[in-house]
Amino acid sequence: MNDPEDRAWLKEMITSLLENMATRIENLDRLLVSKEPKDLQAELHQIKGVAANFGLAALSELVIKAEGFAKAGDIESSVAEGIKIAPVWVSTRIELEKKFST
């Protein structure tokens, strides 16, 4: 990406991703404690969409598993997978911040 406009657009998108995921992870942390099935599944679905849109494969894989368990009514397994999401996101966020100097 040598075009300054393209780089600025991408940086804006990454900034939006970082802000959105901060909220999503806060919500997820709360729902992993409350274990409200419908809300947990809905939040996982939102995170799955964000991860897919940005091509975040490792994050997407975890969220797909956690959401699958939630859909099947296995909330304990969903929570067990869900607690792995935040650390993967933190690693991803750090890499994005390094690369895009946000």
Rank of each mutant, 00 (worst) to 15 (best):
M1R: 05
M1T: 09
M1Q: 07
N2V: 05
D3F: 03
D3L: 02
P4N: 07
P4H: 03
P4M: 06
E5F: 01
E5D: 08
E5I: 09
E5S: 12
D6A: 08
D6H: 08
D6Q: 10
R7V: 07
R7W: 00
A8T: 03
L10Q: 04
K11S: 06
K11D: 05
K11R: 01
E12M: 02
E12T: 09
M13E: 13
M13A: 06
M13G: 02
I14N: 04
T15L: 05
T15M: 03
S16R: 05
S16A: 12
S16K: 00
L17R: 04
L17K: 01
E19T: 07
N20H: 05
N20R: 00
N20D: 01
N20I: 01
M21E: 08
M21R: 07
A22P: 00
T23F: 00
R24Y: 00
I25V: 13
I25R: 08
E26I: 02
E26D: 05
N27I: 03
N27D: 08
L28C: 03
D29F: 00
D29H: 09
D29E: 13
D29V: 04
L31V: 06
L32T: 11
L32C: 11
S34K: 07
K35Q: 10
E36S: 01
E36G: 07
E36W: 01
P37F: 06
P37Q: 14
K38H: 04
K38V: 06
D39I: 03
D39L: 06
L40F: 03
Q41R: 15
A42C: 04
E43N: 13
E43V: 08
E43D: 10
E43A: 09
L44P: 03
Q46H: 05
I47V: 13
I47P: 04
I47D: 02
K48R: 11
V50T: 11
A51G: 12
N53S: 12
N53C: 02
F54Q: 07
F54S: 02
F54Y: 13
G55N: 08
L56F: 03
L56Q: 04
L59F: 03
L59V: 05
S60Y: 11
S60H: 10
E61I: 07
L62E: 14
L62Q: 14
V63S: 14
V63K: 12
V63R: 10
I64W: 02
K65C: 11
A66V: 13
A66P: 09
A66S: 15
A66W: 08
E67C: 13
E67W: 06
G68R: 14
G68I: 12
A70C: 12
K71F: 09
A72Y: 02
D74G: 07
I75F: 10
I75R: 09
I75C: 10
E76A: 14
S77A: 15
S77N: 15
S77T: 14
A80T: 15
A80S: 15
A80W: 11
E81N: 15
E81K: 15
G82C: 12
G82P: 02
G82W: 02
I83M: 15
K84M: 10
K84L: 15
I85Y: 03
P87L: 11
V90L: 14
S91V: 02
S91P: 01
T92H: 01
R93C: 13
E95W: 00
E95Q: 13
L96R: 11
E97V: 10
E97K: 12
K98T: 11
F100G: 09
S101V: 10
S101H: 07
